[in-house]
């Protein structure tokens, strides 16, 4: 594919998300640099906000299709889609940091300039994290079962929640 402004091959595929519709741009390196520096002032202001930092991350190297696919990805635990996170800047549950890890990683690095925690740790072990995550999922499934008037399923889920809560409690050190 050729650059939109010259004969060179387009190596930068930018999806601009500032308008109502995503706009795709295909540019060579020189024109991409020019385009991005034109927007620099705006970007600098935006990078102070989370949404801005995220938009900056996603602008480079992703086609509209890739982005659309990414937006549809949902966390199996809390059900939040990446699109919802991208729009509101808030995650849905602790597990999102695991299931959206590859998308969040560059964003987190952009915000903090680091990717590893160096501060305090909880004194007791956090080995029960799977059980805690399971509880979030089970509670959501319970609500969905009740909403769908599927009471048999709801009753099963309620039992599972109680036993998981007991296990999680027992796991405390």
């Amino acid at each position: 594919m050729k650059c939109e402004h010259c004969e060179k091959p387009a190596t930068f595929h930018i999806t601009e998300l500032t308008g109502s519709e995503p706009v795709e741009l295909h540019l060579c390196e020189d024109h991409a640099r020019q385009y991005l520096s034109e927007n620099e002032e705006e970007t600098n202001v935006a990078s102070n906000s989370l949404a801005g930092a995220l938009a900056q991350q996603l602008k480079l190297g992703q086609t509209a299709e890739e982005l659309a696919r990414l937006d549809k990805q949902a966390c199996p635990i809390c059900g939040i889609t990446f699109f919802e996170f991208r729009n509101h800047g808030r995650l849905g549950c602790p597990h999102d940091y695991v299931c959206f890890e590859s998308e969040l990683e560059p964003l987190i690095f952009n915000i903090h300039g680091a990717s590893e925690h160096r501060g305090k740790h909880p004194k007791r072990s956090v080995l029960g994290a799977d059980l805690q995550t399971r509880l979030i999922r089970l509670r959501r499934e319970l609500k969905e079962a009740i909403d769908a008037e599927n009471y048999e399923e709801a009753s099963k889920l309620r039992d599972e929640i109680i036993s998981t809560e007991k296990q999680a409690e027992g796991g405390k050190s």
Partner: peptide, 28 residues
């Protein structure tokens, strides 16, 4: 924080630290 943590399970990730609703607060 230590006193509260002695009776509450905080969301914590070995590499990322304390997990927060907004990634701008993650870590400490």
């Amino acid at each position: 924080d230590d006193r509260i943590e002695s009776c509450v399970n905080y969301a914590f990730h070995e590499r990322l630290g304390y997990l927060t609703a907004c990634p701008t607060n993650v870590g400490t």
